[in-house]
């Protein structure tokens, strides 16, 4: 359901325009009331939790903090989290590009329905997302007995974690690319082909450069979600320490064992990841809408 986060949007700075215009300017007390109430709400619900993560992480000192991060189970959780993201992001990237190419550059019946289906994982509860793989690959599931016979573990093992991660991050890149590529149309590709470019040349030299910022944006969001996913992964993981724990699951285990400082230490890494994501996202938004140097003539 992160449809909005995923919207690739121009946000030019219009506030000063509104403030300069007498018809759209609000009186000072309205302005400060709105800002005051808005910022209070923002602080209580967003800022304080973010600060709390770091404060709690260092409550027992830097020693405990770093000890919690280099502990073997923590390191193994970090490795698994990176692995899950490293598999699911590229797969969803290939899917996103391929789906956007088919949908934006060609006409075929049922296109809007396909777009809706691609959005589906956003509206499915993460817990249900985990459950469906248990039903397919679990011991009681469709392929469970067969997998068991051949000694292949999917559920309560790394493959299950990767699958659940792919599911919850499935639409991120596709839904960045589809509207943008649809808006861009086929003209530039047709021009390239008419100038003698091959299909692949057209794709690499015309299509990809035109969508690179949207692509990067999708990858950033997809990666953040892949590394942070909790509910879906929790269902299929089995919580085996040092083996099937991702960072968010490791946070949960530490927390439930009342090792609060350690839990917040690992959580602070994830919070840092979130901040980096926001910085990159803001940068990409800024880059993709920055006018090319020089003045507009037309």
């Amino acid at each position: 359901m992160a449809t909005v986060a995923a919207t690739f949007d121009a946000r030019s700075d219009t506030a000063s325009k509104f403030e300069a215009n007498p018809a759209t300017r609000d009186s000072a007390w309205v302005k400060y009331l709105v800002i005051g109430v808005g910022l209070t709400y923002f602080t209580i619900f967003l800022l304080l939790p973010l600060i709390a993560v770091f404060v709690e992480a260092f409550r027992k000192g830097a020693g405990t903090y770093f000890a919690a991060l280099v502990e073997p189970d923590a390191l193994s959780a970090i490795r698994l989290t990176i692995l899950a993201a490293a598999i699911s992001v590229p797969l969803n990237l290939v899917f996103g590009v391929s789906a956007a190419w088919a949908i934006a550059k060609f006409q075929f019946p049922g296109k809007n329905f396909l777009i809706t289906l691609i959005d589906l994982p956003f509206s499915v509860s993460p817990v249900v997302a985990g459950l469906i793989y248990v039903l397919v690959f679990g011991l009681q599931g469709w392929f469970g007995p067969w997998l068991n016979e051949h000694d292949i573990k999917v559920i309560f093992a790394v493959p299950g974690i990767v699958l659940a991660t792919i599911f919850v991050t499935f639409p991120f890149i596709a839904r960045e690319l589809i509207p943008l590529m649809q808006a861009q149309g086929r003209d530039e590709e047709e021009a390239a082909i008419s100038l003698g470019a091959s299909g692949l040349q057209t794709f690499w030299r015309v299509t990809i450069p035109n969508v690179k910022w949207a692509l990067l944006y999708g990858v950033i969001l997809c990666n953040a979600r892949a590394m942070g996913e909790f509910g879906a992964v929790s269902v299929v993981s089995g919580h085996i320490r040092g083996e099937t724990n991702t960072m968010p699951l490791h946070v949960e285990i530490l927390y439930n064992e009342y090792q609060f400082a350690a839990a917040f230490a690992v959580a602070s890494l994830l919070a840092l990841l979130a901040l980096v994501t926001l910085v990159l996202k803001t940068y990409v938004e800024w880059r993709s809408h920055r006018p090319v140097a020089g003045e507009q003539v037309s």
Binding site: D187, E190, A192, S194, L195, Q201, P209, N210
Partner: peptide, 26 residues
């Protein structure tokens, strides 16, 4: 055939020079 599109279909990420050179470079 040389085709000139109604809305020009110039490659927006390339300079004018690169646009014209495209057909030769590919």
């Amino acid at each position: 055939v040389g085709f000139v599109f109604q809305h020009y279909a110039l490659f927006r990420h390339m300079t004018v020079f690169e646009n014209i050179a495209f057909g030769l470079r590919v």
